[in-house]
């Protein structure tokens, strides 16, 4: 089974040379730490950065220099700053190649819910609705089951949707899944020490298992 770092490490392997990537809050943010050496990518932060760098050294924080999670960050050489409309312009026009974000639920046809639990929690969608409506490639990083032990990979979402038919791939602590065009979660890899049976028991939506499923190598 993977911990949060493991999920981030596995997703980092999906990041290819030459990509502009938007990382959401939480596990997706950790992905930046595991992008392999020698791969040139630029991180986009939707509050207006391309070429986002690591956190500043202590004492060098700048209140005017934050990421979309409101954390103090730095810029890398070659970075640029722009306003929020241009930021979503590059997202809508699909110049940002890959979006990695968290989710509360994903359905077997690729619908995603991650912004509201009616009556309990309403934080807002932030930029997530714009990102999922436009990105060509969306990877969801999340826990396979919620705190109540219920599957988050469902036949259809029960929570208010963030976007429809948009998620392409999911990485959880149990495995890696492609969301199929005609519906269903196709199991690609098992997390270390996890059996297909375990994954089947934790997946409420349609699980597609074809042939031997390799154990992931991190």
């Amino acid at each position: 089974m993977l911990d949060k770092t493991g999920i981030a490490k596995r997703i980092a392997r999906e990041v290819k040379d030459g990509m502009y990537v938007n990382l959401g809050i939480g596990i997706p943010t950790l992905v930046a730490n595991y992008i392999p050496e020698g791969i040139n990518v630029e991180l986009q932060s939707e509050n207006g950065i391309l070429g986002m760098g690591p956190f500043p050294f202590e004492g060098e924080e700048d209140a005017d220099m934050i990421n979309a999670g409101k954390q103090t960050v730095t810029l890398l050489p070659g970075a640029s700053i722009f306003d929020s409309a241009m930021s979503f312009g590059m997202i809508r026009s699909q110049r940002v190649h890959l979006t990695i974000l968290g989710a509360m639920e994903v359905s077997e046809n690729g619908d995603i819910a991650n912004w509201k639990i009616p009556g309990k929690m309403v934080k807002g969608m932030g930029g997530a609705m714009d990102l999922v409506a436009s990105a060509r490639n969306i990877i969801v990083a999340m826990q396979h089951v919620n705190k109540a032990g219920e599957s988050k990979l469902l036949p259809s979402c029960t929570l208010p949707l963030t976007g429809v038919k948009c998620v392409k791939k999911i990485v959880t602590e149990l495995g890696v899944f492609d969301v199929m065009e005609g519906g269903g979660f196709r199991l690609l890899e098992r997390a270390p020490g996890v059996s297909v049976e375990q994954i089947r028991n934790s997946t409420a939506g349609k699980l597609i298992v074809e042939g031997e499923i390799p154990e992931m190598v991190l």
Binding site: S84, A85, S87, M125, G126, G127, M129, D130, A133
Partner: peptide, 20 residues
Amino acid sequence: MLSGELEVELIPQGTLATRC
């Protein structure tokens, strides 16, 4: 918001920016 004292309209961030 939960008590109804405050009216809230949540809209996507890119939509908010572009409406401006």
